[in-house]
Design a protein around this nucleic acid. Sequence first.
DNA 1: GTTGTGACACATT
DNA 2: AAATGTGCCACAA
Length: 115
Amino acid sequence: MDGEEFLHDKISNRAFQNQVLNFLLTIPKGKVVTYGQIAEAIGYPGAARAVGNALHKNPDGEKYPCYKVVNSKGELSGRFAFGGIVVQQERLEADGIKVCDNRVNLDKYQFYPNL
DNA sequence: GTTGTGACACATT
DNA sequence: AAATGTGCCACAA
C-alpha cells in the first residue's frame, strides 16, 4: 500500500467530514438527527458547528441525506444548498417523515445511534 | 500564525 | 420565553 491517499489528505482534514458524511449514510429511513448528535456520535461532542461546516462543504443531497439533519429544535436549518425548504420537506416526507412548518417531530423521528 | 465566520448547542441573564 | 454569552471544531481570508 502506498500513502498517496494520506498525502492528499494533508491538504484538509477529511477525517472529520468523512465521519460526518458516513454517519449520514447510517441514518435509517424515516429518521433524522441533530447536529450535536452527529458530533457526539462521531466522537466530537460539542462540535455541532464543525458538523454544519462539513455538510456545507459537501452539498451532495443525492449522495448524503443532509436533509435529515436538523437542529435541536427539530427545525431545518434552512440555509443548505439544495433549492429550498420545500425540497427539504419533500425529501423528508419521501422518507416517511412528516414536516410541519419546516419542523419535524423529534420525539418520533430522532435517531438514537446508541440506543 | 492570527482573526473571523459558520447549516449549532448549552447555560446564564 | 427570549436574548446574550460561551464552548466546540474546522475552514477562509
